[in-house]
Structures are given as structure tokens and as C-alpha cells.
Design a binder for these strands. Structure first.
Lengths: 142, 142
DNA sequence: TTGCGTGCAAAGGTTTTGCATGGCA
DNA sequence: TGCCATGCAAAACCTTTGCACGCAA
């Protein structure tokens, strides 16, 4: 298992980037937002560094990368309980941006079905189902 | 309901772009591929025109837009029968990067289940299931 | 000391926009 | 004729890469 988010040295920049992501759980954060935030608070973190660190964090499984729209660019999100995320799927509302965790038999069955009948082994930790949540659908009716 | 893909004039360019998409159903086509194809066959279609028409087609509901990776850019896909359960999900192999299209009852059931029991309406056009395909799993055994 | 991490700037892509021209209705 | 659509080029963006320097171990 890969686990050390310190596949390399521990640096201030790495810390700050991860801290920012951790302090915004279940939210889509863009590289730009991180850059803005970090360069506002005195420190200076280059764009390249941000992207390099994000890549590494994604690779480590600490955060997740989404791309909803190529125009907006990629989004990143901290995974609060990476270890416990094996038994459930994630539903992401495209309207309110909220992330829902759903542990449901149907989803486990689905996974088994896809593996058995389609030969494809789903990685739940990487998969996100996009859509609109109930709350937002209610809002939209008005 | 918006329906007229002729929200404006009918032009050769518009025709050609849609024709290309229609002739490649259930496939992900990038703007670049369309550009390549159209500028190979004698005609000349500007990049801007392609993007403008694609935007319009997406808005009309004639085609669907995907963004799997912000680095690669967006993909577009013609929708043969928007009404039927002709819809399908996408499986993306994280190893060989291949994209699989799966139209399966189980997935439609899943969608219904999630909507009914979890109040979440999945948008298949934005959803990609990540994992490892059979081919790659075989390779990995060796 | 070793070599990874960082910043800066430049490069590489995709997508958008401005403007004059061309073509549909 | 009136206006939308097109092309071209430039611009705007996001992301990656090269290189010299700095810093963790």
C-alpha cells in the first residue's frame, strides 16, 4: 500500500497545500483557488509547485481529482477517510457541489456485476457519480 | 422545449460537423478530431466555428459533452436516441486509458434505485466509472 | 553533501473572442 | 436586404516543462 504523502521531503509548501485542502473537505478546490489563497497570506507558492504537489497527492490517494468542465479546469478534493472509503461510492451534486457518501448493497452488487459480466474492476475510491441531489431538485421546481 | 438545431441558419459547416458526429455514434470525439477530419477532405472549417457549433449542439441536446481529463480537453458524442434507455455508462481503464461504453440493464436499474432510495438523480453524461479493464488485469497476472 | 523541491518563465494545449466578410432566408 | 455564421488571428486559460537555486535529510 502506498501511504506516505511524504514520498519525498516535507516542505512548507506541501504542508500548506494539503492544509488548505483538508480545511475544505467535501468541496471542489481548483489549483487556482489554492494559488490565490496561498499567495494572499504572505507566502509565495509557485503555480508549478501546486500542480506538482497536487499530482503527487492524487497519486498517493490523499486527494481526488475531478474534471467537470474543461473550461473551468480540474478540481481537487481532500478525502477525509481514505481508508474507510472502500465500501461506498460517492455522489457529487453538480449544482450545490456537495459530496454524498452512499454505502448501499446495490452498489456492491453493481460492482460485482460489472466485474463478472463486463470484466471491469471498478475502483470505488476513484469513481464519482455525478448528478443532482434531492435538495437541489426541489429548489429547481420553484 | 428547445429543439431546433437550426436555431439559426442551415450551413454547410454545421451539416458537416453534425454528420461527422453522427457517423461515429457511441464514440468520444474531440474538437481536434473534427477539425482534422474536416480540413482533410478539402473543405475548410475554422476551429472557432467548430467550437461554436458544438456548443450549440450540446445546448440543443443533440450531442453530449464529456470532460474526462482537463489536460486532454473535452469530448463530444452524438446521442442516437435521446429518449430511450439507449443511454450508457462509461468505464475508464486507469491503466491503458481505454474508454469502454456499457449499456446494461443493471446500470439503468442502479440509476432508478439511487433516484428512488437516495433522492439522487445521476447524470450519465458526467459520470465515469474508473477501474481496471479485463485486458489489463490479464496483463498484470504475468 | 546529495538530490529532491521550488520559482520563475517559457512553452504547449485547448477554447474563446473581436472583427470584417460571406452566405442564408 | 438584414443578420447570423464563418475564418482568421489574437487572446485568454489551464497545465506542463526546463533550469538554476534552495533546502530537507
Amino acid at each position: 500500500m502506498k501511504q506516505n504523502s511524504g514520498g519525498g521531503y516535507k516542505t512548507k509548501q506541501k504542508e500548506k497545500i494539503l492544509q488548505y485542502l483538508i480545511s475544505h473537505p467535501n468541496q471542489h478546490i481548483t489549483a487556482q483557488e489554492i494559488s490565490h489563497h496561498l499567495n494572499q497570506n504572505g507566502t509565495t507558492v509557485g503555480t508549478a509547485t501546486i500542480y506538482r504537489q497536487l499530482d503527487q497527492l492524487v497519486h498517493d490517494g490523499t486527494i481526488r481529482k475531478y474534471t467537470i468542465d474543461s473550461r473551468t479546469g480540474a478540481c481537487y478534493e481532500y478525502l477525509p477517510d481514505a481508508g474507510e472509503c472502500h465500501r461506498h461510492f460517492h455522489l457529487k451534486c453538480m449544482q450545490c457541489e456537495k459530496l454524498y457518501h452512499v454505502a448501499c448493497e446495490h452498489l456492491c452488487e453493481l460492482e460485482a456485476h460489472i466485474l463478472e459480466h463486463h470484466g471491469f474492476q471498478i475502483d470505488q475510491s476513484k469513481t464519482v457519480l455525478y448528478g443532482i441531489c434531492e435538495e437541489c431538485r426541489e429548489k429547481n421546481k420553484n
